[in-house]
């Protein structure tokens, strides 16, 4: 069971609505595993640091997470968590497996600044 302070997206529709109404969105799709925990934690810190970006969680095991798992940009991903960055409703960056705070910061500066 995920324990994160991030708001959890419960359905595909919620994610669709979110990216249509917000310019910058970052979603972490994982479980409470060793590679996921640091990424969730960093997202929680960055949620305060970057108030213009909507940081969200999506439980990897929920059927609606197909909206992330079946993205062409996530094809071949075999490492949790999957993270997806959206800008103006479009996928602008995806990552698989653990990322450091610096890597996430660099991605934000690259695609969401």
């Amino acid at each position: 069971m995920l324990q994160t302070k991030l708001t959890t997206l419960q359905s595909k529709q919620e994610l669709t609505d979110l990216i249509s109404k917000n310019e910058k969105v970052a979603v972490c799709c994982g479980r409470m595993g060793p590679m996921c925990i640091p990424v969730y934690g960093i997202f929680e810190v960055y949620e305060e640091k970057y108030p213009d970006i909507k940081f969200r969680n999506m439980d990897f095991d929920t059927p609606d997470a197909d909206i992330i798992k079946k993205l062409p940009e996530c094809r071949g991903f075999n490492g949790l968590p999957f993270t997806v960055y959206y800008r103006n409703g479009k996928v602008v960056k995806t990552t698989t497996s653990i990322q450091s705070a610096k890597q996430i910061k660099d991605i934000i500066e690259e695609v969401l600044s």
């Binding site: 060793p34 590679m35 991903f77 075999n78 490492g79 990552t95 497996s97 653990i98």
Partner: peptide, 17 residues
């Protein structure tokens, strides 16, 4: 290939295999 063939965590990624 980290995350797309190379992993460092069986607990996390084992079920993909």
């Amino acid at each position: 290939y980290k995350g797309s063939g190379v992993s460092y965590c069986a607990t996390c990624d084992g079920e993909f295999y």
